[in-house]
Every structure is written in structure tokens, then in C-alpha cells.
Write a protein that binds this DNA or RNA. Structure first.
Lengths: 144, 144
DNA sequence: CTTGAAACCTACTTAATTGGTAGGTTTAAT
DNA sequence: ATTAAACCTACCAATTAAGTAGGTTTCAAG
């Protein structure tokens, strides 16, 4: 399960991606539009800034802005930063690998092989999608 | 992340699948071979019995056995029973759907569309794999 | 018909994580 | 100087995960 933290973080990034101008956007605006607790969102955006996804400006008229074009931001990177490992089991994680104490032989583990397949298929989806892809509202709002 | 409960449950099922004979196997044996806490495993196997995956015999010589051939047990079913939803977000779950309170319009949600793709690719992998597939040790142990 | 081995059941515990909130400080534009 | 914003530290309540404890019931074998 995705944490709310991750979900909110993605929504906030998508919100910023939808703004053509690279003017800073206030957390208050994002929080209101996306129905996120203001304080909780602040905390998330600070992480995203520290991770290099966002820049910020303090003081009046300040806010957050994307450091890179949305088409260059892969969802794998975003999710790894916000949520941690993408793999469902640490012993198949590429970026957060950890051995299972209960497992004497990974190569012989029934769970291991299955979870590698799951990981790879998930990585493919998340690697193919950029922030630009998901920020677009695919529905034709004005034509319905 | 898969819970240990789910991981242990799968390992136990795989252990049973590897036994050609349909004789009951004791939790003590499974716990020892798979390095799982005996009491914790008992609790997991009771769930799997109640869910219809396992049968049991009480008393001396008792134990657990598979109710169906391993090739007919899909990993989607096993994981849904042990772990719950496969989707990363309740609003894209087929079997455990729940609306997000923060989201006024699912169809317009940036997270929603992405998570449908992830769900579908995961379902494909888990639906293609049966207990029989994962129970096999693919490595050629005797030939190395 | 007693003994032992097994499943089965109920309740508890301990630690970590999640999803926040509270209350401030610092920075910068006007 | 005022005000609006980011930023920081600390706390908190509820939930979940991963067990443990201590039994009861059932069944086979001697």
C-alpha cells in the first residue's frame, strides 16, 4: 500500500507540473486544491526539496517549483524517494537490498523468484511514466 | 511490502506443494524447515485452512495438506487471502475497493491512472504463476 | 482407556509506523 | 515595520506487525 505521504507527494508534484509558468506555488494553494492537510504537506515538500525534485523561495510570494521539466522526472525516482523500496520484499530490492534472515538460499526461495517478476513488471510501468505523463488530465473536461 | 505473515504463508504452501504425497505435514516440520516461529505459523495455517486452501487432521499423525493440486492455485488468490489487496491504493483495488476521501474525481486523479497500470501488471504476473510454478526449485541442485 | 502428539483457540504484548498537530523561527517582498 | 511564506523541532494517537503465552480439543497407538 502506498502511504498517504507518497500519494500526497505525487499529487503535489503533479499540481506543480500542471502549471506552465515556473513561478513558485504556495503550499497553501496546493493543500487546498488537493485536499491535503497543510502542515503534513509542508513536511512532504521539504523532503522533496531536500531530495532535489523541488526548489523553494522563502518569504512573501515564495513557494515551491519543480527543478526539472516534468517529462524528465520518472515515477520510479519519485516513489523511491517518498515511499522507499518498490520491491515487495527487501531481498529483491535493487536500491534497498536486505537479506532475509529466514532464508538460507535466496536462489532456492519460492517467494524470491516470484517477487523478482513482480518487481520487474512494476519497475517497467513506473519507469515508463514520467511526471508529465501522469499530470495530464486525459479526459476532455471541456468537451463533455 | 509483503508482511512476514504472507511470506511465511507462501513458503508453507510451497513446502506442502513440494511433497508429492498428500499425507498431512506437521506445522513443526514446516516451521523448522522454513525457519518460521512455530506458533506464528500455526496461526497463519489456520487462516489458510479457513480460506479453503488447506485441510487438516488433528491428533497424532495429523497436520496440514493442500486441498487442491498446486497447479490450480493461483498466486493472486493466495496473496489476496494472506495480504489483502494487491493494488497499491484502495481506489484501484478490484476486490477491496474504497474511495479516497481526498479525491473529488477519480478519473482525473494523477495517482489513480498510474496505479491502475501498476495493479494490472502485477495481477498479470501473479495470475500467471501458480503454486506449482513457484514451488519448484528451478536451479539444478545436483548438477552443480 | 490412557498417553502423547498434534491442531486449535483466546488473549496479550511490544515495537514500529502512519498520519498527523502544535508552536514556534527565519527569510524575503512590500 | 509588517506580513506572508518556508522551515524546523517536537510531540501524539491510533493502528498494525510480529509475535508469545497458555491453554483446550481431537485423535491414533499402545
Amino acid at each position: 500500500m502506498l502511504s498517504k505521504r507518497t500519494k500526497y507527494g505525487i499529487k503535489a508534484l503533479a499540481h506543480l507540473a500542471r502549471k506552465a509558468e515556473r513561478e513558485p506555488v504556495q503550499t497553501a494553494e496546493i493543500a487546498k486544491c488537493e485536499n491535503i492537510s497543510h502542515k503534513f504537506l509542508e513536511n512532504i515538500l521539504i523532503s522533496l526539496r531536500k531530495a532535489g525534485f523541488l526548489g523553494s523561495r522563502k518569504g512573501k510570494g515564495g513557494g515551491y517549483y519543480l527543478m526539472n521539466p516534468p517529462s524528465q522526472i520518472k515515477m520510479t525516482d519519485v516513489i523511491r524517494e517518498l515511499e522507499g523500496p518498490i520491491a515487495m520484499v527487501p531481498c529483491v530490492s535493487l536500491n534497498y537490498y536486505e537479506r532475509c534472515e529466514d532464508c538460507p538460499d535466496e536462489a532456492a526461495c519460492s517467494v524470491h523468484a516470484l517477487m523478482i517478476q513482480v518487481r520487474d513488471s512494476t519497475l517497467r510501468v513506473l519507469g515508463e511514466n514520467t511526471l508529465d505523463d501522469i499530470a495530464q488530465d486525459k479526459r476532455k473536461i471541456n468537451s463533455q
